[in-house]
Write a protein that binds this DNA or RNA. Structure first.
Lengths: 399, 399
DNA sequence: AAATCGTCTGGAAAGTTAACAGACAGGAGT
DNA sequence: ACTCCTGTCTGTTAACTTTCCAGACGATTT
């Protein structure tokens, strides 16, 4: 802990003002006064100083009340730009935004299966930038949301079997080289959790866990409103956790249990459905069909809930969160029925009465989370704002 | 985020100075200057002001070098006092310290089995205070380390079967009434983790997990150097986690697995030892004997390590810590042999190569951890120091 | 003689309170 | 209906307070 001279006060107050402007949109000077607690002359001087530095700009006038129209002030978005990218096996979904958070362009592009994905990726970014009339050099940070996890030690993407062509090298490093800006790669489930924290069910929750069951089973762990990544980027990778099969229908798991992700793979879930007399092509179909059928469907869902709950129980025993969110295609399909079943099974397994809810955000949750993450990075770089929330892992240089 | 006037600077600088004095013992003014970065006159004025407020006091002179002897300054310990108490089924171990951290008294007293424990507790605290020539009113905060966990909603002690007489009421609330000071009750394993973080193996580790296997199986989870307690105080209560029995010797666990604490209960471990041809009265004996015997002992220890590792794997899958520490009587008895076995079994279960080490602190780790926790509380109360580390759970009022 | 301690003086940086000129809406008076 | 006054709000300027800094100076010890 270090002391400071009056200069420190400037920094603190500037940051407070920028923070308030970013959070609450354009403000008049007197509104800003109330938010940050400075006096009228100090706030006015602060604004003119920041305007000279191109940090804030005038943004219209506000009339309506008595007295003269008040000048509105906003953060100058053109100071820096970011890209947020949702990377899936088949496509990239890109958003370009400025530092104030307004999205300038959205761009969607298919990715070649097995082809030169890196080139396709770079070209897609280039197109998106062109649409926004920007160059690569205007980009200050890029966050890519993808399945799997990047090992902070090597930069290699792991846990991502569906993304061939992206594995085996220092991914953030290579992308940083290609784009000429710092690039971080973040697990997609983690980004969904970030978005739930900002605009979803977890807005007022300090500690929660977001579970993405079935298929690429994973979890995001948020503690103190900070994403937990873990020493090797593997926090929440419960896919590999060995759990007992708690389903009543025995589909052949041994005494030594099974990988959680194995029990919840699409194949295993389909097999479980079949044992209950429900045949479907994949897990999503099984769940949808089960909801439509009667008692047998109900029994299958209960068994599925038991399997899901076994892993959730492990997470709850370790972190005892305020809330468990279920997300992902299958969980959404299962709806509140499946959610309730998981909740009641969970109550049989652990002592805390942790509520289980369905995640809220849909659509482009990954990209939205990546955008907020990228904004957090540039806002820390440019303004020194301590946005510890949702920061992506330490930016790797391509050394 | 709010802005501040020059007055804020005072606060920041005062706190920085107090923090530096607390951490680095008595300092001369020029040493303090270098630590906090203030100029000579400002530091001198700061010290005389704090001296007038009785916050710091002169503490001897430092000679030896050239020039006049420099005045040494220290935080005035008499400002506030704390008690740290290690509560076990049979006894209480009390330490009284002042806010500067110097221990004034240590007091040990037996607790009546089944008798009026609260009265015995209060009397023991009174005696300890008398030895330090203090009254109850001099005590600003008390931290009690005990088995089990306090539910933050009700204040009731749970998970603590060995502590009859302490359950069924708002424990911190009652103790607060009895002592007339705020009292917090903290899980003992958590306090050991705090101590490992300050003086043990976890000094430079941000995220780690301390596992206390066998008997009252529990874990402490530290994330970002902050103890994780969980929404209901149940974080780390892996005793209740359902895991498959990974031991090669089948002692009868079903397909649906077992409670982790059940697999590692003294009885179960003794039974496992017997299956390997090692007979002993309890788990501790089994482990000690196994270390002395040959191949069979080795096999038993490997099976025990498999059981231990199954739970550790769950924790590692969820939080992916930098380090796993093994603590507790049995783990200590198992020594590096058991530790190595757990480490290698763990590597077969999870992807991260998390190192497993034996915990370092012994002796009065719980009390020491409680002391640091209590100091953190009063230092925040009195000086406003933001010691987010190791703070005990929100202090409950007895309303 | 050299270095160091403690104190003193003048000044720079940041913010606060108070006062004032101008702008605008709304109501009172004609 | 029109004018004019009043109250409120904006933005600026001036005087003062708080806090810290740089440098100088005498005193003290090796």
């Amino acid at each position: 802990m270090r002391a400071g001279s009056p200069r420190l006060l400037r920094e603190i107050n500037d940051r407070a003002a920028i923070d308030a402007l970013l959070r609450n949109g354009p403000l008049t000077r007197s509104e800003l006064e109330n938010l940050i607690g400075l006096s009228k002359p100090a706030t006015a001087q602060l604004l003119t100083r920041l305007e000279l530095d191109d940090v804030v700009r005038r943004d219209g006038l506000r009339g309506g009340g008595r007295g003269p129209r008040a000048q509105l002030w906003a953060v100058n978005g053109a100071l820096a730009h970011v890209a947020a990218i949702d990377l899936t096996p088949d496509s990239v979904d890109i958003a370009i935004a400025d530092i104030s958070g307004t999205t300038l362009t959205e761009h969607h592009a298919p990715m070649p299966r097995g082809g030169d994905v890196l080139t396709a990726f770079t070209e897609a970014v280039g197109k998106a930038l062109a649409e926004a009339h920007l160059n690569l050099s205007d980009l200050h940070h890029v966050v890519v949301g993808s399945p799997g996890a990047v090992d902070p030690a090597t930069g290699q993407l792991g846990f991502a079997p569906h993304l061939p062509g992206w594995e085996g090298f220092d991914l953030p490093g290579r992308l940083t080289e290609l784009l000429g800006t710092t690039v971080t790669v973040e697990n997609d489930v983690n980004l969904v959790a970030v978005e739930e924290m900002i605009a979803g069910r977890a807005r007022d929750v300090r500690d929660f866990v977001l579970i993405w069951p079935v298929d690429a089973t994973g979890a995001a762990v948020v503690i103190n409103r900070v994403l937990l990544r873990g020493a090797t980027g593997g926090a929440g990778e419960i896919d590999w956790m060995r759990v007992p099969d708690l389903a009543e229908q025995d589909t052949g798991a041994g005494r030594q249990g099974d990988r959680y992700g194995e029990l919840l793979s699409s194949v295993a879930v389909t097999r479980l459905a079949k044992a209950h007399g429900i045949s479907a092509r994949n897990a999503l179909g099984a769940v949808t069909r089960a909801l439509a059928s009667g008692a047998a469907g109900r029994e299958f869902l209960a068994d599925l809930a038991r399997r899901i709950a076994s892993g959730v129980a492990g997470v709850v025993s370790v972190v005892d969160p305020e809330l468990v969110l279920l997300s992902g295609e299958v969980a959404q399909a299962g709806g509140s029925v499946l959610c309730e079943l998981v909740a009641s099974e969970l109550r049989r397994l652990v002592i805390p009465r942790t509520p289980v809810e369905l995640a809220l955000v849909g659509g482009q949750a990954v990209r939205a989370g990546a955008l907020h993450s990228a904004l957090a990075v540039v806002r820390e770089q440019v303004f020194g704002l301590p946005t510890e929330d949702m920061l992506p892992p330490a930016t790797r240089s391509s050394s």
